[in-house]
Every structure is written in C-alpha cells, then in structure tokens.
C-alpha cells in the first residue's frame, strides 16, 4: 500500500482499520469542505517537494492512512495533528470525497 507520508510506507507498519470504519458511508459534501484543509499543502496536480500526492488514492488507502495517523501508528506530527481531530464519520467523508474526484476524472 502506498502511504501519505514520505518517511514510511504503510506496508512497513501494521494498520488494522476497524471494520466499522471501513463500512461507514461518508458525506461527500462535508468531505469537500474538510478536504479544503488538505489542499493547503497537497496540490491537486500531484506530489510537490516533501508533500505526497493524495489525489487518485482509493477510499481504502485514504481511510487506512488517516486512521494510521490518527492513532499515531504512522509518524509525522502535522498529519497526526490533522487526523487527530477527525471522527470516524469525518474520515469516511474525506475518503468519499476524494473517491468521487477520481471518478470525475475518469
């Protein structure tokens, strides 16, 4: 699995995302608002400097990464802080929004 941190790959750490979180249906409109916070650093057209690309990632990848940061399994203080305030519903909303972006592009 590809990860959102430049420092570690998710396949190097073991992230067991709770089934209930993976099952949640996210609110896309809320996800779009929440995603505006991501866009300060993550450019829409891909990777830049030390900030990885998050566009085109699958819902599962995004949920796993955000959960991994929130639970402080994956290092990086900025992302641990950003994900740290996200509820399960908000993680699902973000993942749903980014998934829809992929489908639009296709």
């Amino acid at each position: 699995m590809v990860l959102l941190s430049g420092q570690i790959h998710a396949d190097e750490v073991n992230i067991d995302v709770p089934f209930e979180l993976l099952e949640l249906v996210g609110d896309v409109e809320y996800g779009e608002y929440l995603a505006s916070d991501c866009k300060t650093c993550h450019k829409a057209d891909g990777e830049s400097g030390g900030i990885p690309n998050i566009y085109g990632k699958s819902m599962g990848e995004l949920i796993t990464a955000l959960y991994g940061y929130r639970e402080k399994i994956i290092p990086n203080p900025v992302m641990q802080m950003q994900a740290g305030r996200l509820s399960d519903e908000e993680i699902a909303a973000l993942a749903a929004y980014f998934e829809i972006l992929i489908n639009w592009e296709e």
């Binding site: 300060t40 650093c41 993550h42 450019k43 030390g50 203080p77 900025v78």
Partner: peptide, 26 residues
Amino acid sequence: FVSKTGEAADLRKATYQESIGWYSGI
C-alpha cells in the same frame, strides 16, 4: 506540536522538504 531540539539531520531535511511542498500547495 513543535519540532524538538536535537532532532536527526534526516528528519530536519524532511521537514524542509515538506515546507517546499507546502509553499507549492498553498
């Protein structure tokens, strides 16, 4: 959060790289 004194050079370099990405993003 705030960076810590005595951090390893590769972490400081990654932090700088992150700032370049942030500039591009914002």
